[in-house]
Amino acid sequence: MAKLRLLFVKENQASYISHLDLMRTFQRVFPRGGLELRHSQGFHPHPLISIVLPLPVGQSSECELLDFEVEQDVDGSGVADMVNSGLPAGLCARECYRVQRPARDLAYLRASIELDYDRGVPDGAEDKLRELFSREEVLVSKRTKHKELTEINIIPMIKELEWSRREGRVCVLATVAAQNPGLNPALLGTAVCAQLPGLAPDFTRVRRLELYDAQMDIFR
């Protein structure tokens, strides 16, 4: 019996696999490789498997974490390779190890956000964007779990932003709160659309790059 954590990449086609579908996919991957998932002991046993911080559909990530419990007493070595032979395209396991830290220690995430402009980046875009996110309050409307619209101020959840510019796009390296509450980095794009309609990008691409604890040490 062991509690394991799998670090994996989710990109390309796989970025369109939803959270629930991803759980289902992993439930099938482990038995294929001979690992027996532990099941809850209730009347309706279900496999003990969870994703530490679900990734919104359409975003890619280099650092997804999946926690799961297996019947065998193993330390996770060899699991990443085993898993990789049975994953859909766009998913790739990097490492597997025994869980050392609880998921609640996860505090921040770093993501790159790319704002694409098909007709070139508008003049003065970066300055306007910097100004927007230096305000005390930027309200963004978002749907709650109960499908109601609510307004949230995203500024307190942003720890750091680094701006840069490339051909036809503005890039932001954002460090934001991961949970309790966490900020979906795509909301930065939403905020731009709402507050600076002239700078609304044609496409917003988000990639999760790293996870950190409260002391900004890498969370594994």
Binding site: N12, Q13, A14, I17, V29, P88, A89
Partner: peptide, 14 residues
């Protein structure tokens, strides 16, 4: 809705 339907890449796709 359900974009995963349009991207292929499933396990055992040839």
């Amino acid at each position: 809705q359900k974009p995963a339907r349009y991207v292929g890449g499933e396990f055992n796709a040839v």
